[in-house]
Each structure stands twice: as structure tokens, then as C-alpha cells.
């Protein structure tokens, strides 16, 4: 019963927000803003810029709220808008260009069993170039398929795969460096 009530409550808040009720819009913002800023921060190194992108994405959320069909989760819908906004921001502002690589050698990456804090993870991801970081986030963190990434970024599927492989290789090197630094060997 609680789940049903929560769902109904969310639906009424969404409907109120569609009718431009500012209180309902603020409720949605306060509920999801902290999670969505984390998502934006995955893609954008600068926290202030990430917040700007999040605000722009929330604008799109509220202006396109009537298009939400209540089929999937509302959080997932907002998250997709955030990711699309981050990707377009990086592509426009940073002017990221991908080198088309149809044939590439897929390397096996050793599994690392060590545990990292979320700040370490963010530090590792921040070490990647914008293009690599974007594809790594989309594939490994968000769970997008290479085909979807290729459509989203307007590149070949092979390019997406090769970029991911390069990103993983770079990430492994950084993890090794971080481990050595923690062990005091470097």
C-alpha cells in the first residue's frame, strides 16, 4: 500500500509541476538534485560547471515534463536528461573529437580486487581525457550499449569500443600508480 501511495503522490506532484506549480517543482528539485549533481560530476570535472549543467537539465525536465509517460521510473527519466545534457555540454564546450578506429586490438585487463573510496574513484575518472571519460561513464557506469553510445555521440560502434579499451587501459595504469603510491613504493 505504501508503494502505491508513494507512486500516486509522485504522480500528483508531477501533474502539479506540469501545471507550473512552483512548490511541486521545488519538491522534485530537492528530491533529485543531489543525486543528479553527482551524475553530472562524473562527466564534468569542475563542480561549478557540473551544477550549471544540472540546472540547465532541470529546466529541460520541467519544460518537457508533460512528455513523461509514467512508463519507467521518474528518476531514470531525469537521469537520462542529465546524461544527455552533460554529453552535449562536453561535445560543444570541450569540442571533443573521436578518432575513428574500426579495427583495434582488444586487450585483457586484469581485475583489481582492491577497494577504493568514492573520492578515489572520482579522482581516477577525472584523470581520463574528456572523450574517454564520457564513453567509460556511459558504458561502465550507466550501462549503455556500444550501439547506443555510437548513436548518441554520432560515431561508429567500433570507435566506441576502441575508446573504451583505451580508457580502461589508462584507468588501470592510474590504479596501479595509486596503489603503488599508497603502498609507498613510488
Amino acid at each position: 500500500m505504501k508503494v502505491i501511495n508513494l507512486h500516486q503522490e509522485e504522480q500528483t506532484i508531477i501533474q502539479m509541476a506540469i501545471d507550473q506549480n512552483r512548490f511541486a517543482q521545488q519538491q522534485i528539485y530537492t528530491k533529485y538534485s543531489s543525486k543528479m549533481l553527482s551524475v553530472c560530476r562524473q562527466y564534468i570535472k569542475d563542480l561549478q560547471l557540473a551544477e550549471d549543467v544540472m540546472i540547465t537539465a532541470f529546466m529541460k525536465v520541467f519544460t518537457h515534463l508533460k512528455n513523461f509517460e509514467h512508463k519507467g521510473s521518474f528518476e531514470g527519466w531525469i537521469r537520462r536528461i542529465m546524461i544527455n545534457e552533460c554529453v552535449s555540454f562536453i561535445r560543444v564546450q570541450k569540442q571533443v573529437k573521436f578518432i575513428e578506429e574500426e579495427a583495434f586490438f582488444e586487450e585483457r585487463h586484469n581485475d583489481i580486487e582492491s577497494k577504493f573510496s568514492v573520492d578515489d574513484i572520482q579522482f581516477l575518472i577525472d584523470g581520463l581525457p574528456d572523450g574517454y571519460r564520457m564513453i567509460f561513464n556511459l558504458y561502465a557506469i550507466e550501462g549503455y550499449k556500444h550501439q547506443e553510445i555510437a548513436v548518441m555521440l554520432g560515431i561508429n560502434e567500433g570507435t566506441s569500443k576502441s575508446q573504451l579499451s583505451h580508457a580502461r587501459k589508462m584507468l588501470q595504469n592510474q590504479i596501479n600508480k595509486l596503489k603503488n603510491y599508497e603502498n609507498g613504493t613510488e
Binding site: S33, M54, M59, V118, I141, I175
Partner: peptide, 29 residues
Amino acid sequence: MEPNNIEKQMKEKLNQRTIQPSANAWDRL
């Protein structure tokens, strides 16, 4: 090419993370 353990760990921890936006963010919106 499947996500390895470190990637799964990254996904879990990043999905649980929350960053509180600045106080004037809502005012701007």
C-alpha cells in the same frame, strides 16, 4: 569487454553518492 570488478565497484559507489548543490542553485533555476 564486460564490466570487471573494479567497474562494478565504481558503479555502485557512484550511484550511491550524492553531492548537495549550492544554496543559490534553486534560486537560479
